[in-house]
Design a protein around this nucleic acid. Structure first.
Lengths: 206, 206
DNA sequence: ATTAATTAATTAACCATTCAGTTAATTGTT
DNA sequence: AACAATTAACTGAATGGTTAATTAATTAAT
């Protein structure tokens, strides 16, 4: 009796498709089981492949983790990429930015559970820390540029744009934190409006 | 040859001393290795006891984790307990509170790496989540009470104290976040002063 | 025929937990 | 003060399961 193929109905993919699929599976597993709880075996089982395939593509778990951070960063970049601020008046442009920052879709994009896990790891792994720092740095620069534009157009008073961006990111990250622990579905909209007002105030700060 | 005692120079303690020692060791190990990386064996090795002793006292790892959350909560309570606001004028009282909140000693008390790890776990473990919610809830009430006092005394304009407390906690947590990724030792003082000013502004918000 | 995708089999280390045993301090009794 | 009984602190050894990683083999597409 010849050994039959055990394909289990799975299609044979190429690296271009398989690698992102693995990273996404890692991300989902991370949310459910925590970082150290997201083993290679569990990540593989979720997408019905052999654990060895993951090591074949990523070599070891650290590389897989770095790929995950890249994935999260790309998700954020994609989100910011969909933001169209062009063609708006300076006032409308700033208003639209505030709207996006404090919209539900925006902050739900990357589940904060994943952020916490990766941030916790970043304390122990300098390479991961560097990548995350890069993410926030880009975010901060993006905000600062918008603030500077608004300032140049006279929409807000002139000030240190980078410092203002720092304040706003502080608020945004704190809000992700706070929402998780306190804010129910119904209060959420109220809280976000409150945060939007606080952001406006911070932009006017000297 | 009779079996000699193998005390290894360690004193025999009682539960009252040993249990907190174990919890603190767990906390330190957590900071270094992450939650799932902080195994009972490693926690035991750090204080030179047998892993079985930990199970003897805590039964299983979940109970140990719950004890850790209690420990962190107590550390915070101890910190707030040292705050003496009594006997000050309403103005000075509010000023002192702001000073404490944005002092280095205060935010360094509980290393944010530990917070991230526990918060990440809180998504998966409702009992831990409850405890952490309780911690923040108490914190929020404490702040709200102080804000109300200042408001009654006319130091700040009247407003919704709980909402203001929510804003301030958002800022505090965001700042812990931001500091980790951005703020160097030298910029830190500047950043904290900036945050203190932002807190003042939030207290005046309508 | 060559190459890439995938699995299989195995290893050695580590995991939480159990259970049974040992050691030392405390207490009660004489 | 001496001694047995009791209790609490602590250790040892073994359990069954999981971990990341290695090496070799197999399968399918080009």
């Amino acid at each position: 009796m010849p050994k039959t193929s055990r394909n289990n109905g799975r299609q044979r993919q190429n690296a271009e498709i398989r690698k992102p699929e693995i990273v996404k599976s890692f991300y989902q597993t991370l949310l459910e089981r925590g970082f150290e709880g997201a083993s290679i075996a569990k990540v593989a089982a979720r997408i019905n492949i052999h654990p060895s395939l993951i090591l074949h593509y990523f070599g070891n778990k650290e590389n897989l983790t770095l790929a995950l951070v890249d994935y999260v960063i790309e998700e954020y970049a994609r989100l910011l990429g969909t933001v169209t601020l062009e063609g708006l008046s300076p006032e409308a442009r700033l208003e639209r930015l505030l709207e996006i920052i404090w919209s539900r879709e925006y902050y739900e994009k990357i589940h904060i559970a994943g952020s916490f896990s990766l941030l916790a790891v970043s304390f122990r792994n300098p390479r991961i820390r560097e990548k995350i720092e890069g993410l926030y740095s880009g975010y901060r620069n993006f905000l600062a540029k918008e603030i500077q534009k608004a300032s140049d157009a006279g929409v807000i008073e002139h000030q240190d744009a980078m410092r203002t961006a720092a304040r706003i990111i502080t608020l945004i990250e704190g809000a992700r934190h706070f929402r998780h622990l306190f804010v129910g579905k119904d209060e959420c909209e109220q809280y976000n409006q409150d945060m939007k007002a606080a952001t406006r105030m911070m932009m006017q700060m000297q």
